[in-house]
Amino acid sequence: MSGAHAAGPGGDRRGRSGGGRRRRGEQMMVPKAEFSSYYGRPIIKKPVWSELDIGGYLFTGGIAAGSAVIGAGADLTGRPELRHVARLSSLAALGVSGAALVHDLGVPARFHHMLRVAKPTSPMSVGTWILTAFGLPTGIAGAAELPGLVPPFLRGLVGALGRPAGIASALVAPGVATYTAVLLADTSVPSWHEAWPELPFVFAGSALSGSAGLALALAPCEESKPVRRLAVLGAALELAASQRIEHRLGLLGEPYKEGSAGSKMRLAKKLTLAGAVTAAALGRRSRVAAVASGAALFAASALTRFAIFEAGVASTEDPKYVVVPQRERLQRRTSVTPS
């Protein structure tokens, strides 16, 4: 803490950044800069988003995207059970995701105002359009799996559109899986913004491993070979990318390692690793193992998103995460070009 809460109203509170655990290697990455602040109060506003809504929206969006790809793959490679669960998971996840997003609005009734404009500088605007593009085919593909619910006169059509819709939704899916990373990075939240190069890969990996986990748990073993592969590949991608964030960001990597974000992150990694290994080793033979590893990966994906959300919020609560890096940036600049 910046020590701003000491007695006396002296405004120019000096604090020391860093602190935390002093393990070898970490020390160098945590600069011990003297910095001043206004009574240690936050400089930028912490997001007003509720963790459950937006963390959940990030997570379920990823699941929807991954499941769409799995659904299409299963369809094209003739894995009906897998296709069935994947398409339905995708639709369900999308539903939850959209609901969470709308629920978090200050004026939910005005959700449609999102569709007034299309702005590349606004990932939320871009995302809204991507989701819209994703929603229709995903809906049709999902409907094709539940003929019972489709009005008789449409059943034929829906059945026929199932595959093209599934493929269409799989084509949009990559966007759905990754734009949310830009959504977080395109803010002044220090630990989100600085992580902009890696975040999309974390999200992509997490989306794949999470959705693969879900499919693994729901689909019969004999059809689940691709999702076991996917689980491993996704897990690898996620782990690599998030590892890189924590190390490259230095001081701003701290929030990913400390507090509840830190423990969520650590647990997520353990589960991802365990889930991937188990899936690869036993997922084929043991249904129990498949379900267990699938659940682990699914949970891990959720934990990762919540951890990232919390880490960002934490980085807005202590001014050091704003002041210290910006000071260093200034020094670098002025030392290069003394003005």
Binding site: A65, G66, V69, I70, G73, P120, T121, P123, A170, A173, P174, G175, A177, T178, Y179, A181, V182, A185, D186, W196, P197, P200, F201, F203, A204, A207, L208, A212, P226, V227, R229, L230, L233, G234, L237
Partner: peptide, 22 residues
């Protein structure tokens, strides 16, 4: 933001690639 989108596109590519590969 441009760079961010570029990275997102790359990640999307990897995402798709891995999907196919699987």
């Amino acid at each position: 933001v441009r760079a961010m989108w570029r990275h997102a596109a790359a990640a999307a590519g990897v995402f798709a690639g891995l999907g196919v590969a699987a």
